[in-house]
């Protein structure tokens, strides 16, 4: 075997290993979470963890009901998605199809800047401005509520949604648009009936990635949602998400305690949720490709 062939096989081996390592890491993280999470259920019933409506980790006896946290995460994610999906797709359409070139470049660089703003800074904006503003305009008891978090999370998900949707829209073949115009379609009809459907798989992927971003985000929600581990009755109340719970309580939980394991269980739930979202997006993508 000559040196060149050895080189080739080394490179091939390295590339293969890199691919497998990703799978290995995901699997290890899952095992790691599972390993500590199951320890909770030696003393604390699984049923009460899943259906319990009270999260009181330092009361006596402690309650580790995940329902308020889960609902908190779902509420915030749901409203953030409702806000950012239409706005995101509309601006992607504008940037890809309507805006003149100079405006397109300006908008794209602003979106990049938006993406690079640290979440702590957005949290500040929420505390100092958006929270009080919502409190005054909606006459709330406190501005530190789910809606404030949803707005900021929507802002954080926007760059992801816009840039991936824009890619999808731009890659719609020009010939489709020509066909539509040739049949006498207006610009709007062409966008709505031809461009958007053809880009739908990419747009769905963009939305899913945006949702993934939203559900995993920690700092902003910890700063602005009020962190009350109560079952939220509406998005206008203070609530607390899964992520904020882990981040907020991990420091004070004694290593090896029930509380400590409960936080791992919360992490496991978060892991499973993101896994499901990814799984759904893969299914949706493959379905829309048919």
């Amino acid at each position: 075997m000559c040196i060149r062939e050895i080189k080739e096989s080394v490179i091939e081996f390295f590339i293969k290993i890199s691919g497998f390592i990703i799978i290995l890491f995901v699997f290890l993280i899952f095992l790691f979470l599972l390993n500590d999470a199951v320890l909770l259920f030696k003393d604390f019933p699984l049923k009460e963890f899943i259906f319990g409506k009270r999260w009181l980790p330092i009361s006596n006896p402690p309650h580790f009901g995940i329902v308020p946290l889960l609902l908190g995460s779902l509420y915030v994610t749901f409203f953030a998605t409702i806000i950012c999906v239409p706005v995101g797709i509309a601006s992607a359409l504008f940037i890809a199809e309507i805006a003149p070139k100079f405006l397109r470049n300006i908008l794209k660089s602003f979106i990049e800047i938006l993406a690079s703003i640290p979440s702590v800074v957005l949290g500040f904006v929420g505390i100092v401005w958006l929270g009080p503003f919502l409190k005054d305009t909606l006459k709330l008891n406190t501005g530190m509520c789910g809606l404030t978090g949803s707005f900021l999370l929507a802002l954080m998900a926007l760059p992801t949604i816009i840039s991936i949707s824009e890619d999808a829209i731009i890659s719609v073949p020009k010939s489709f648009k020509e066909a539509a115009f040739g049949l006498g379609a207006t610009r709007w009809q062409t966008l709505w009936r031809v461009v958007l459907p053809s880009a739908s798989s990419g747009i769905i992927a963009a939305i899913m990635l945006g949702i993934g971003r939203v559900i995993g985000e920690t700092m902003v929600v910890m700063m602005v949602t009020g962190n009350a581990p109560l079952v939220p009755k509406s998005i206008l109340q203070p609530l607390r998400t899964l992520t904020a719970t882990i981040a907020g309580e991990m420091g004070e939980a004694i290593s090896g305690s029930e509380h400590y394991f409960a936080l791992f269980a919360v992490g496991l739930v978060l892991f499973i949720i993101t896994f499901i979202i990814n799984f759904l997006s893969v299914i949706l993508l493959s379905r829309s490709k048919k």
Binding site: S175, A179, A180, F181, G182, G184, A185, T186, V194, P197
Partner: peptide
């Protein structure tokens, strides 16, 4: 728009929409 309806065009490459036959025809 009426002009383009009355003067139809067929292009070099078949550019059917990425959708059903029905959708293409009823567009």
């Amino acid at each position: 728009l009426n002009l383009r309806r009355n003067v139809g065009m067929v292009f070099q490459r078949p550019n059917v929409f990425d959708a059903s036959v029905y959708y293409n025809l009823t567009f």
